[in-house]
Design a protein around this nucleic acid. Sequence first.
DNA 1: CCAATAAATTTGTATTTTGCAAATATAGGT
DNA 2: ACCTATATTTGCAAAATACAAATTTATTGG
Lengths: 157, 157
Amino acid sequence: MENLRELFQIMIRRFGFLDKYCCSTDEYNISLVQSHILYEVDRRPGQSIQTISETLGMEMSTFSRQIQTLVKMDLVKKSPSPEDGRVFVLRLTEEGKGVARQIDQQMNAFLDDVFSHMSSFEKETVIRSIQLLNASMAQSDGCCSCKTEISLATKES
Amino acid sequence: MENLRELFQIMIRRFGFLDKYCCSTDEYNISLVQSHILYEVDRRPGQSIQTISETLGMEMSTFSRQIQTLVKMDLVKKSPSPEDGRVFVLRLTEEGKGVARQIDQQMNAFLDDVFSHMSSFEKETVIRSIQLLNASMAQSDGCCSCKTEISLATKES
DNA sequence: CCAATAAATTTGTATTTTGCAAATATAGGT
DNA sequence: ACCTATATTTGCAAAATACAAATTTATTGG
């Protein structure tokens, strides 16, 4: 079990492929970053441009332009916050929710496939481990600013 | 433990940050893809352009240009294969190995930090789980073409 | 040995993405 | 109202990407 990093590097690469191949649907050609944006807007609707760009670790200017694109595609709705006229608040359109759901299904189908090679005990163990990892990464603010909100993810452990 | 995808999405995002923040060193400003290239060339020296671009899931033309950049930076050495004059074979320069080692150290330091929040039993379990995941993903060719070679990664389990 | 076909890599080129700084717009305090 | 801070957008130049066409070397069948 030496070379911890190799283990993780390969896993990350694999999930990167997964992510990449699951982001387009029949009707829409969604880029990887766009799928991440849809995911996060779907998960936490009503958040501001700034909040979500930070969560995803993107430059705000880049993010702003991606949102413009997604608004033009009619997948995201951008409305001024009633509380603060400077901030804009993001939500998915019905169309956008449909796309997000499709991506979600593709991802889950793949994950099911991966887990089909394990016993249910192994599956439980792996899931438990990912939860542990997520929790530990949330605690550890040593290296990188992992600002990802995981309240929702850890809540239902 | 419903919503498998959320669990993984957050983990991938976190490791994406990690990856991103660990790829530059004091002397070199390495991009994320470049760090992946260095990693893979280091891991399997003497592979062809085509092989590595496929392993990393990049367009060969894009990859070719990235290699040109890395050769100019004197991190990668590109030499014609003695067996087949059409193929070029990649290795890291001493400088490149140094950079790869530095990135590796940063990653491992972060991973150690993450694991410091766990008991050694938990750590063992998590590592075992990642190995399992990698193995299962290697078997599963359902969704995406996960061509990633893991022979080295799984060998020493 | 030559012509034709195939494979590995590079180059042309147009498009997209990105990063940083400057601009714009709105809030809030004094 | 004036000044400062915060949220977002825009200008612009640099880098990354995709796809097709070009280049180079191998291989194969006559």
